[in-house]
Design a protein around this nucleic acid. Structure first.
Length: 351
DNA sequence: TAATCGTGGCG
DNA sequence: TCGCCAAGATT
């Protein structure tokens, strides 16, 4: 049996039962694919269930507020996915009369839909033989064929896409695509692949030559930037505080946070209070207290955020804009939501 | 084109 | 503890 048929046979016996596999509704398949970009199924599953229940049709999603969508997306990361998801839902509802594009070429035009996602939807929902190439596919193909081309190079991206396309089962492209991904995820895993019981181990180059540990090859290591965040957490006697929305480019667009002063390195209180940005944001005679002496290091894929929270007690009869009991309505990054949870337990120390 | 965009699990 | 990696896309 050849490569493709073997994978499909393996898949029929070993596939995972997942809610988005019970439908060919392109809206639900699209929703699942966007959520699972660079995201493990275990992490994305509960979000899919929540979204598909709240928004069973694309028009339901289109009619929601963007902040609502971001709030529901909170904790899943890569928040531009949520904004693009909402934008595209509105576009399909308003400009395409609610009819989902049905070809790879048309799907690719949607915001947030790239080569992988267009191929997945086209093959799964419309039986178009377009091969998906995700992290699993790179690994399976690199090992099976013994390919050393870096998977994140321009050459590698083209090479692996063409190879996957040449292997696809044109009669059941959706099944093939999901088969090779599940196979990569469960059998041909990054670490400790189960080569002993693999149905294609006798024709796998990496298995034959002992290359499973080095394939696939990925070049370039990312540089991590260190940043130093000082969040100003205002507290008042009437239980209000301040939040601001992150705008412009960079991390966490559209998410909310406490007023922020970023510094080049960790600063002492004496330095912080002399800064112009501080004096601009904080009324004079406010009491300031450092919440965490040791900076919380929040790690993103390209940045380490060394974060300290400063509790700013405003003087009597002053008011901030947001009540603490409303704060949970705002979409916030995990760093902020973790702080809020911790602060709620200890806040009595600061009043 | 290479850099950037989150969060969490694993060995 | 730390680097790797996960159903990638965008600019």
């Amino acid at each position: 049996m050849n490569f493709s048929n073997t994978l499909i046979y393996w898949y029929l016996q070993n596939n995972r039962e997942l809610p988005w596999r019970k439908t060919k509704d392109p809206y639900l398949v699209w929703l699942s694919e966007i959520m699972l970009q660079q995201t493990r199924i275990a992490q994305g599953l509960s979000y899919y269930l929540k979204f598909s229940e709240a928004f069973p049709k694309v028009e339901n999603l289109a009619n929601a507020e963007e902040s609502t969508v971001l709030k529901m997306w909170q904790g899943l990361g890569y928040y531009s996915r949520a904004r693009n998801l909402h934008f595209t839902a509105k576009y399909i509802t308003q400009d395409l009369q609610g009819v989902f594009p049905s070809t790879y070429k048309e799907l690719l035009k949607l915001k947030g839909v790239g080569d992988y996602t267009a191929s997945a939807i086209a093959s799964i929902c419309f039986d178009e033989p377009t091969a998906v190439v995700d992290g699993n596919v790179y690994r399976v193909l690199a090992r099976y064929f013994g390919i050393h081309t870096p998977i994140n190079s321009t050459k590698g991206i083209k090479e692996f896409k063409a190879l996957a396309q040449s292997m696809i089962d044109v009669e059941q492209p959706g099944t093939f695509n999901q088969a090779i991904m599940d196979f990569g995820s469960l059998q041909c895993k990054p670490q400790n692949p189960n080569c002993e019981e693999c149905p294609i181990n006798n024709s796998c180059v990496a298995n034959e030559k002992g290359l499973t540990k080095i394939l696939p090859i990925k070049e370039k290591k990312i540089k991590i930037k260190n940043r130093f965040f000082n969040y100003l957490v205002f507290v008042t006697e009437d239980g209000t505080t301040e939040l601001e929305e992150r705008k412009g480019k960079g991390i966490w667009q559209g998410m909310y946070q406490f007023p922020l002063i970023e510094t080049a390195k960790e600063v002492a209180e004496s330095t912080l209070i002399t800064m112009e940005a501080f004096q601009q944001k904080v009324p004079s005679k406010s009491k300031i207290q450092l919440y965490n002496k040791d900076a919380i290091v929040h790690k993103l894929s390209h940045q380490h955020l060394h974060t300290r929270f400063w509790i700013i007690k405003l003087k009597e009869n002053t008011k901030a804009t947001i009540h603490w009991y409303d704060i949970e309505k705002y979409p916030v990054p995990v760093l902020i939501s973790n702080f809020i949870e911790d602060f709620n337990k200890k806040s009595h120390n600061f009043f």
